[in-house]
Write a protein that binds this DNA or RNA. Sequence first.
DNA 1: AATGGTATTGCAAATAATTTGCAAAGACAT
DNA 2: ATGTCTTTGCAAATTATTTGCAATACCATT
Lengths: 142, 142
Amino acid sequence: MNNELSPEKILKNKGCKLTQQRKAIIEVLSSGGHHTANEIYALVSDKYRGINFSTIYRNLELLVGLGIVERLNISDNCSHFELINGKHHHHVICNKCGEVREIDICPFAAAEDREKLKELDFEATEHKFEIYGICSNCRHKE
Amino acid sequence: MNNELSPEKILKNKGCKLTQQRKAIIEVLSSGGHHTANEIYALVSDKYRGINFSTIYRNLELLVGLGIVERLNISDNCSHFELINGKHHHHVICNKCGEVREIDICPFAAAEDREKLKELDFEATEHKFEIYGICSNCRHKE
DNA sequence: AATGGTATTGCAAATAATTTGCAAAGACAT
DNA sequence: ATGTCTTTGCAAATTATTTGCAATACCATT
């Protein structure tokens, strides 16, 4: 896997240039969490004045393609992005406030899954698991 | 659960009217599978001439809200919709051809999951599980 | 079967997210 | 320091989805 290499190294290896914009995007994502393109644009703008939206989108696309960033299709209207660092995890999403939290449960390990996949003759590369419901906060208010 | 009631009954119970358009949308989804709003529009248009896109969207939204239809955020650019009938299932998605297939594996049953959720004090109502990779077809060609 | 109140539709226009073409600027191997 | 090739900013295009509003269709009631 790419896990041992830093995002910067991976870019270099693939012949991509390490621009200020890319550094800024990676830096923003490095602090963890999942962000929309909008949020990333805002956060990066603080570090790199005048960055353009299309630059954000183009680079997120690139980083996803290189396996550096994961795209989450959590809500219905826009993608969220997060850096793939060592710790594999999944997500818990509150239907009320929209908050997204991480869980370190991974259901994929279960042997049965792999068995059935073999029947399908499907070569699995990634998987996603999301749990929806009401978070503690939302349940306890009103 | 709503599983015992037909979509039509559920609509009635909620005081919603059973319009031709709604019947057509439900009929289209009843044949199974997952479709984009676009596809549903095309399919429904065959049954009900002159239906409008906004009617499709408004009703899909309604049906999702009533727990009759599930919205799948499988691809990055648009939602897919499928009828929730008796059999709970998840999805396997080919990264190459985009084909989506169902699997009857459900990882949520694992006890551990529920334990950790309790720690989070999160009340889970739904969950989704998707496996991405390369399907048999795509792997065997070229 | 006709009627009326209310939910629903079609239409057209508005949003919002994302993508694209192109000339100018930047990265980096030499 | 230079040249090449990638990447950026800009502006405009695309695509999915939503919304306001007047006209219409459901369906409970008469």
